[in-house]
Amino acid sequence: MDDLALIIEDDEDLSIIFAEAVRNAGYQVEMIRDGQSAQKRLKEANPDLIILDMHLPHVSGPDLFNQIQEDKRMKDCIVVIATADARMGDAYTTKADFVLIKPISYVQLRDLTARLKNNSEDAY
């Protein structure tokens, strides 16, 4: 089965671009557009990769991040934070696996996630 990637991003165009990049890297992609839905989905899904926007409606990115951190099922899940706020990014450099500051290039995200996919395959 393909590795699952969740794209949690409220902007339609950005989620299409991120999804395309991650799909091209070899993941099975699921797009979530608001915090509340993300909160629900994260309780049951078992993703290998999460692209997390910090500025979301209903439930904030940091809250979702904490939820992921606390959930033991997702301890191996790689979290890539995507934020426009450089200071917010700075605050998560040590906590998250990767922090990307918007604008995020399609090629940049595709290459990064492709590398992550290869690494995870190498591990098996």
Binding site: A84, K102, P103, Y106
Partner: peptide, 10 residues
């Protein structure tokens, strides 16, 4: 910034 990021991505 958000639409510009989108233009860039597309």
């Amino acid at each position: 910034r958000t639409p510009l990021n989108a233009i860039l991505g597309y």
